[in-house]
Every structure is written in structure tokens, then in C-alpha cells.
Design a protein around this nucleic acid. Structure first.
Length: 480
DNA sequence: TTTTGAGTTGTTCGA
DNA sequence: GTCGAACAACTCAAA
């Protein structure tokens, strides 16, 4: 039997159940179908497309190492493309690993039905999660909406399967179907703005393994203390690799356990902060699966009345990193330049947009979607709703991040800010997070003309905080 | 069914 | 400068 392996967000050869299943058949034909129309309104953004291009190149290379190939196609309709390929190759089976975005679930279900109706076997597998969302429920049988009990429950379930080895060889078909070159998918930007991305990332399975190794070797043991420090290399930076499935959570789970066992920490390894972050990734998928409307609407209906402001200029200043609050601006510049932002800074800049500027969280989510290489519908939705306070684990409404306080706490010497805002490089530590409070002589000495070289704050945080508290109180008391 | 305890990530004020 | 209290009320999970 000839089997099509339909790759999507599982761009790896190890720990890939669909690929392993096909490896046992007579012939396996790996295929990736670029079909942005079917992804609307969440088609990959510009940064994600850049990543995808390179990830596909690496996957093709890895498959060649197995004596195989990656067939690339562009289509508006994945089902039609699969049927055409199956017909052309005489394939009688299609296998894939599941996706969990609402639109993808609906499409894949339809495709499975249609393939079977056409006499083609169709099998799907789990490559992306430790536990399938439909297997996790509280004692009432309902989905969890609070992280801690959710994750406690997950840890009490049977351990996830060991990751599968990559197949040694993939059986090739007698003849290969036609394939596009990666460039033909037009994923790369026409004007090359991706220099910063190239400098920061190595897409692909090997890049992912390297990230994991480097993290275990250097940052894992001090993760709890350093993970909130954007000025240090304290995080794993695995997020884009996980999003594209270049590495899976089972592999991370296994690596964390091995690491702990080798150091005699086998009793407590499941409590490690790093695994808990993998738990948050699971939780995000759990919520998206059970509450599919949340990418566009708050989980808490009470937020439907929130009085967002319409202020395109404020939104633009936030996007461009010219709010006058260095930690916010540095984060937005890091995002623009490297396609990624440190998680602590994501919270600070998101809080600033939503609470200080009263811009709708969906506008922030849309910008992150376009600019993040790790843009992930589940994680992005959870993150923005969490900061806003309209999602699971709603933050108390008075939790409004103070950008200068957060800067001083988590970037104490201003290294992070200075790196992305070189115009502030010569400002002494004391004022690095509050340039507007620096004495004129200090600003002069540092070569900074406020309002010219670096903006004045676009809002006064103290006033903005009061305004946000009022807006929240108002929306709660407002009649429905 | 009712009750109880708890909830990733914070800030400000006043002693 | 440091510390503890106050900031509301609500929802969820589980007993």
C-alpha cells in the first residue's frame, strides 16, 4: 500500500506517529500543502511564513536523509489536492498528525470523511500534545478553566508515550509526483527585512534539538530565577520550534525527566517550572479546543461591554515601539527585529496596550500574530485574554503592570533596553526606565533630546491606570 | 446542593 | 528603603 504523509504543523521526522505509521507501509510519500485560504482569518503572518519556508527546506533535507522526499503543493483546497495526489500515485491511505485550531478541526474532519468515502483510508495521530483535550476533564466532566487543577490532573494521568525514533528509511514509491520548489510558495518577504530573524533563529528539527540541548546545558537549573529576565539568556526559546512541530512536548518531557534523573532529582522533576510552562502550552490548547470562539471573543462574556478606545495613533505608537516607556518600546523593537519577544516583556507591553492605552486586546493579538515567529492561535489567545483579564484565570482587575517598575525589576541594569533602544544607550541606569524624569543636564550629557531622539511618554501611567480602573468598574456596572 | 478554599506572572499606600 | 495590607468580587474545582 502507498501512503501519503500529510505534513502540517509537525515538521519533524522523529517522534512523528503519522510518519512512523507510513514507514511501515509499502511506500510513503511525504507531502506539504500550502493552503493559506483555508487558514483564514488566521493564515500565517509574515514572520511565520519566513519560518515556514526555512522549516520546509530543513524537513525536505531530513527526508532526503531517509531516502525520501518532500512533495510541496500550493492549493486552495487541501482535500482536492490530496485526492489528486492519491489518484496520481495510487495511494490508498493518507495519514497525518492532528491540529487543534477550530477551523483546522472542522476541515480535517471533513477531509477524513471524504477520503474514506472515496475508498482511501485516513488515520490521524497525536504529535502535538501530551494529552488530547477530550481526555482531560474535571470531576463534573467539564473542561478545566483554571490552570492549577488542570495541570495537577494532567500529571495524575498515565505518563505520555515515549517519543518515537525517526524511521531509519522511508520506503520510496516507484515514481515521485511533481513538487514545487519552496520558493514557489512565496513565503519569503519580497523586500528582505528578515536579517534579524536569520541572526536569531535556526528553523528546523536540528535547530530545535540544539535549542533544547543548549537550554538543558545552560539555563534549565536556574530557570526559576532567570526566566523573567529579558536581559539574560534564561529561557529555552523553543516556542517557534514547538509551534511548527519541529519538536514535540513528549521530547521535552523526556529530556526534562532524564536531566533530573541524572542529577538525583527524580522525585520533584514534574514540579519544575519549565515543565509547568509546557503545561501552560497544553492548557492553551485545551481552552482553544473547548472554547473555540475565544480567538475573537472574550471567554468571560462580561467583557463584551468593555469601553475600548478607538485610537489608531496610540495603536501605531505601540506597534512601532515609540510609547516613551523604554521596556515597552524595547520589547516591540525586539519583536519587529527578531520575530520574538521575551515572555515577561510580552506581558508588560500587552498590559500597556490594553490597560494604559485601552486598545482592544484583539488588536494586540493581531499584531503579534503577524510579527511573531512563534505565533500560535492557542497560546496567543490565552496570553492576550489573560493579560486583559477576560480569559481563564482572570487577573484581578487592579493588576495593571507598571512599565517603569517592571523594567527596573526585571532589567535592572537596562541592558535589554539599551540593546534595542541604542538612542538611550548613554543614559545612566538610574533613569534608563524613566527617561522623562532624568534632569536636563543628564539627558544632555547622554545626547538625548526628549521628543526628538526618543519620545515623551504618550500617556502618564498613573493617570492611565486610574482611567483603566474606571473603565473596568464602568463595564461591570453597565446595564446589559 | 451547598460550601469552602483557592486562583502564574501586580501595584500602591502608609507605617 | 522595606514591609504588610488593601485593592472586589467572582469563578472554578472539589469536598
Amino acid at each position: 500500500m502507498t501512503t501519503l504523509v500529510w505534513f502540517r504543523t509537525d515538521l519533524r521526522i522523529a517522534d512523528n506517529p503519522a510518519l512512523a505509521a507510513a514507514a511501515a507501509d509499502d511506500a510513503a510519500i511525504p507531502v506539504f500543502i500550502h493552503s493559506p485560504a483555508e487558514e483564514a482569518p488566521w493564515a500565517p503572518g509574515a514572520a511565520s511564513r519566513w519560518w515556514l519556508h526555512h522549516s520546509l527546506e530543513r524537513l525536505a533535507e531530513d527526508l532526503r536523509g531517509l531516502g525520501s522526499r518532500l512533495i510541496l503543493r500550493a492549493a486552495d483546497d487541501s482535500l482536492r489536492e490530496l485526492l489528486a495526489l492519491a489518484s496520481a500515485c495510487g495511494a490508498r491511505r493518507v495519514v497525518w498528525n492532528r491540529r487543534y485550531e477550530p477551523a483546522a478541526i472542522a476541515r480535517d474532519k471533513q477531509i477524513k470523511t471524504a477520503l474514506r468515502a472515496a475508498g482511501i483510508a485516513a488515520d490521524s495521530f497525536n504529535a502535538a500534545l501530551l494529552h488530547e483535550p477530550w481526555n482531560v476533564a474535571n470531576k463534573s466532566g467539564a473542561p478545566y478553566q483554571v490552570f492549577t487543577p488542570f495541570w495537577r490532573h494532567c500529571l495524575s494521568l498515565a505518563a505520555p508515550d515515549e517519543p518515537l525514533e525517526a524511521p531509519a528509511l522511508l520506503p520510496a514509491p516507484p515514481a515521485w509526483p511533481q513538487s514545487l520548489e519552496p520558493a514557489a510558495l512565496s513565503l519569503l518577504p519580497r523586500i528582505d527585512w528578515a536579517g534579524g530573524l536569520r541572526g536569531a533563529w535556526t528553523p528546523g528539527g536540528r535547530g530545535a534539538e540544539h535549542c533544547l540541548d543548549a537550554f538543558l546545558g545552560e539555563a534549565f537549573t536556574a530557570y526559576t530565577e532567570r526566566r523573567n529576565r529579558p536581559d539574560l539568556a534564561g529561557t529555552s526559546r523553543l516556542s517557534p520550534h514547538l509551534h511548527f512541530g519541529e519538536i514535540g512536548p513528549r521530547r521535552v518531557w523526556q529530556a526534562a525527566r532524564r536531566f533530573a534523573r541524572a542529577r538525583g532529582l527524580e522525585d520533584s522533576w514534574q514540579q519544575s517550572q519549565f515543565l509547568t510552562e509546557i503545561g501552560w502550552r497544553e492548557f492553551a490548547h485545551h481552552l482553544l479546543y473547548h472554547f473555540p470562539h475565544t480567538p475573537a471573543e472574550p471567554l468571560r462574556a462580561s467583557f463584551a461591554m468593555f469601553p475600548w478606545r478607538d485610537d489608531p495613533e496610540a495603536l501605531a505608537a505601540w506597534r512601532d515601539g515609540r510609547t516613551g516607556y523604554p521596556i515597552v518600546d524595547a520589547g516591540m523593537r525586539q519583536l519587529w527585529r527578531t520575530g520574538w519577544m521575551h515572555n515577561r516583556v510580552r506581558m508588560i507591553s500587552a498590559s500597556f496596550l490594553v490597560k494604559d492605552l485601552l486598545q482592544p486586546w484583539t488588536a494586540g493579538a493581531a499584531w503579534f500574530w503577524d510579527t511573531l515567529v512563534d505565533a500560535d492561535l492557542a497560546a496567543n489567545t490565552l496570553g492576550w485574554q489573560w493579560v486583559t483579564g477576560c480569559g481563564a484565570d482572570a487577573a484581578p482587575y487592579f493588576r495593571i503592570f507598571n512599565p517603569s517598575g517592571q523594567g527596573a525589576k526585571f532589567d535592572p541594569q537596562g541592558h535589554y533596553v539599551r540593546h534595542y533602544l541604542p538612542e538611550l544607550a548613554r543614559l545612566p541606569d538610574e533613569w534608563i526606565h524613566e527617561p522623562w524624569r532624568a534632569p536636563p543636564s543628564v539627558l544632555h550629557e547622554a545626547g538625548i533630546r526628549l521628543g526628538v531622539d526618543y519620545p515623551f511618554p504618550i500617556v502618564d501611567h498613573g493617570l492611565a491606570r486610574q482611567r483603566a480602573l474606571q473603565a473596568l468598574a464602568l463595564s461591570k456596572g453597565a446595564p446589559l
